[in-house]
Design a protein around this nucleic acid. Structure first.
Lengths: 332, 332
DNA sequence: TTGTAAGCGTTATCAC
DNA sequence: GTGATAACGCTTACAA
């Protein structure tokens, strides 16, 4: 591989000049510019990004930490992030935290040890304090799907409460009065918010809320099935179930069928997230869209702007979900 | 951030010695070793991986190129690859090629410009010749899901023919005699092999093959629906359809239902790949497992062994698929 | 077993 | 505008 030194010799200029045309940050006479460019071409010169990083103290790499790499959720996030950065000549290093505090911390150190210029964190297990400390240590990062007050200007979040509201309102507008709710782990911020939105819709329609109609699941398919069975047993008058995510909704679909309910006539079900499999269910799942891709893109923009001073588009930190109507909801 | 130099001063030894305990490749007296370790601890020293790369001419990074980052397929691949490398202290840089020749080539140069020590390539559009050239340029890489004779010892592949055979045999064993086949683009190697397996099973059971029963799709859901309608119209005696992947099988399920066939009694359907959504369909899809994760792990092992001389486990290059029985196949 | 010193391929600060 | 030259933080002969 040719080096900058060989280029400088061939072009008959100094090292520094070659570096200048490479980075075109300092004016260079057009004539010499062309000479250098020609020399580069001739040698098939490719700058060594490692040496650049060492000298400039920038790696042009961004670390991404997500809970899982598989699963229906993070593909589009990664995809859009990678895309944005690649166009800017940066690259992305990935790691998975598996929603485990120790692993999340390890992954963060790992990414830091890789000299990432910035991190995009989708973390669940680590505490707010830890993240604040990270900020105080001058680590550059953006948070996805989590809001920490002290870090307000680097949090990209979804309006989960509004999503929960939309889901339940959709049921109410279809004339449902007895609506079960299968929640995510209620200690999780998004689960709590989605549930709040549900309650708000209920209140708005003057429907009283009952403990009978609530089941706390764990966001996994199995708990959606369990929840459905539990709810329908406690309160067989239920005609609709709102699930706090699509996985649980899929479980609910299966369970409802096992209990002999026809779908959607015998039981309407709505999900949340609009993950990639949600239109493969039967009936195709009505759900709330989570704009993961856009949020990933925005996280990238934010870093491009704040860390690299590139890009001047405006930054949006909270995103609005919307309803995706498919076939799993009907009138009771 | 503390440097190796500060550590050496604090420990009262030379730069070189610190480097030695860091890499423990050269014997160091236990006593000094401990002094150095203590100094590192005290300073919270973290080696600068960029400087290490420049000096050692190794970046400890591996580039991964897949067609898509989203989609149901590549998550588990990435997940298992990342895992294997992280345990070995390496990291992974990702890129997407979108099955486009130009993009695939660009992505490969991009990854090379990042000084990756090796690449894992899941490419579709680039030619065999291009890959052979790449090898001749001494680029280190492993191919996933593709076999190129000259590159035989760096190809990790699935026995697609056997998979196709298993799928069709499963139908035959259930007593089906009129079996439709929805293929992937037949110019693709895996599509061709899967189809060959189908024919072999037919022959083995003494069932003649008919053009009427073949439909060439494009591996997408829509074409599975189209294919099902076309086949059932041409040959309504069909009682089973073998699809060359799960997406098309999902389309087939929907189309069959629209045509008023009950599932699986009125029509049995089998898929291929066992992607993440295949058990969310209704009925749950019977399919052929594609061990993406294991193949990713193996690709990582191969690189660890050949590029880093780490790991001495044996290398397996061809993987066998197996049947996953769920609910979409019954007797006719 | 340890130290010295020459790189690795850039960028960036000076002068000129 | 351009050219020397000192970093950047580490690895690795070669000596001792």
């Amino acid at each position: 591989m040719a080096t900058i030194y060989e280029v400088s010799k061939l072009a008959g200029v100094s090292l520094a000049t070659v570096s200048r045309v490479l980075n075109n940050n300092t004016p260079v006479k057009e004539e010499t510019r062309l000479k250098v460019l020609a020399a580069m071409e001739e040698l098939g010169y490719q700058p060594n990004s490692v040496a650049q990083s060492l000298a400039s103290n920038r790696s042009n790499s961004i670390g991404i930490l997500v809970p899982e790499l598989n699963g229906p959720f993070f593909g589009t996030l990664l995809s859009d992030i990678e895309n944005s950065f690649r166009q800017a000549g940066k690259h992305v290093i990935i790691a998975a935290g598996h929603s485990d505090e120790k692993l999340e911390k390890e992954s963060i150190s790992f990414l830091q040890s890789r000299n990432c210029d910035a991190l995009i964190l989708h973390v669940e297990a680590v505490t707010d304090e830890y993240l604040v400390e990270l900020m105080e240590k001058k680590v550059k990062f953006v948070l996805i799907n989590r809001f920490v007050p002290q870090l307000y200007d680097r949090c990209i979040t979804l309006n989960n409460q509004h999503g929960g509201y939309l889901a339940t309102r959709h049921m109410l507008e279809h004339g449902h009065q007895n609506i079960g709710y299968i929640s995510g782990p209620i200690w999780k911020h998004d689960a709590e918010q989605r549930y709040k939105g549900h309650l708000r819709a209920l209140t708005e329609f003057g429907i009283p809320h009952s403990e009978q109609l609530f089941y706390e699941g764990d966001y996994h398919e199995e708990s959606g099935a369990l929840g459905t069975k539990a709810l329908l047993q406690k309160a067989s008058e239920i005609t609709a179930i709102v699930c706090a995510n699509d996985e649980m909704a899929a479980g609910a679909l299966t369970a409802a069928r096992e209990l002999g309910r026809s779908l959607p006539d015998g039981l309407s079900i709505i999900g949340f997230d609009n993950v990639n499999f949600s239109h493969y269910t039967f009936p195709k799942l009505t759900t709330i869209n989570y704009p993961m891709g856009e949020m990933g893109k925005m996280a990238a923009q934010l870093i491009l702007k704040r860390v690299y001073q590139q890009n001047n588009s405006s930054i949006q930190t909270v995103f609005e979900p919307h309803l995706i109507e498919r076939d799993s909801v009907s009138r009771p």
